[in-house]
Computed example of a mutant assay.
Amino acid sequence: MENRNFIGVDIGGTTVKLAFITYNGDILSKWEIPTNKEGNGSSIVEDIAASIKSKQEELNFSHDQFIGIGVGAPGFVDVGEGFIYSAVNIGWENYHLTTALTEETGYDAWLENDANLAALGENWKGAGGQANHLIAVTLGTGVGGGIIGNGQLLHGANGTVAEIGHMTAKTENGRACNCGKTGCLETVASATAIVRSAYDAIEAGEKTTLQEILRQNETISARDVFQEAAKGDQASQSILDEVIHYLGIAIANLAIAINPTRIVIGGGVSQAGDQLLNPLRKVFDQNALKRTSQAAEFVIASLGNDAGVLGAAYLAKQKSGK
């Protein structure tokens, strides 16, 4: 095996995804370990290093068959310094992640925000198709994103480019967001928001089949809302109409600023496919400039959970210069 491989690491609040990836973007092996958040995540880097070493031994890979590590983490990061200002759902504050990783593994390491890495991964090996101008939107527990302009991932003045979930969607009577603002896009268009709206509809006494779903399962998911809407449940459809309205306007405004050729929609909510994409495109077209709209193709992300580790490997490939 050639000696130009990379290690991709995608740190999440529940699991850490890891992969050995070739120079050309083929996954040699992928696995995950639990994210140990005890002690404000003090053992996470040690766990990652031990897991990498164990997997290399298991697969008979030598240390020098890998060039370096790309790593993604949630929260606000300084990519130049490899520094995490705050990753609330892990417990890190003012943490020099890449220095710690290098000390534990012996590899050079490069850091990026996890949503940005998903955009890089999709653009390298997935639905982005190596576009020079791309907006990636991740609809999951929250709403994240990444923007590529002139072939480069954008970071801005202090690393907060594409915090799409915290664009203001509702200027009045908006829900509180964990960022401290109210009415953020995340509070109306995430999987969490969809579920919250479903419970609100039931509590308001609306006639809806979601009530039966709740009785049977003792919980409601965003998937349930999409499925019930497809069956004709009006309350479910109204929830999705609101989601698509605010999301479509937000993406249209972003597109007017960025002028992308491709808009990639990922995350768990994107599994709804055309049920989401077709009405979203309609709202987008109504609110974007005609020339902006003509240039932009909407696609569903194709890499799933592999986007982050592939983006991490691509980051390491770019930064190592090898």
Rank of each mutant, 00 (worst) to 15 (best):
I148Q: 09
R223F: 02
T171M: 07
I135R: 05
Y199A: 03
A204F: 00
Q152P: 00
H166C: 10
T168I: 15
G183R: 04
V195K: 12
I148W: 07
Q227P: 00
D224C: 09
R223Y: 01
T219G: 00
V195W: 02
E206K: 15
N113T: 07
S236P: 12
G145W: 05
N132L: 02
A136E: 02
E163Q: 13
I147D: 03
G156T: 11
I213E: 06
L134Y: 02
Y199N: 11
K170L: 15
N178V: 13
L210M: 15
S190I: 13
V137F: 05
T187N: 09
I194D: 08
I249C: 02
Y199L: 13
Q211I: 12
R223M: 07
L210E: 08
Q234F: 01
I194H: 07
I148N: 07
A157F: 08
K170E: 14
H133L: 00
K125P: 00
A118I: 07
G232D: 10
T168V: 13
A115P: 08
I164T: 10
D200F: 03
K170F: 01
I164M: 06
W110A: 01
H166N: 10
G180P: 10
A176N: 06
G140F: 10
A235G: 10
A136G: 15
I135W: 03
A250E: 05
F226K: 11
C179R: 08
R196E: 09
E212N: 14
G165Q: 06
Y199F: 15
S221L: 11
L153I: 15
A193Q: 06
T208L: 03
G142H: 13
K231C: 01
I249A: 01
A118V: 14
A191R: 09
A198I: 10
A131K: 09
A230C: 02
T209R: 09
N217P: 01
Q130D: 12
F226N: 08
H166P: 11
A198Q: 09
Y199R: 08
G144E: 03
H155D: 02
D241G: 04
T168R: 12
D200R: 13
E242Q: 12
K231Y: 01
K125A: 10
I213L: 02
R223D: 05
G180T: 10
L153T: 08
Q237F: 01
I194A: 08
D200S: 11
G121I: 04
I220V: 10
A157W: 01
T219L: 04
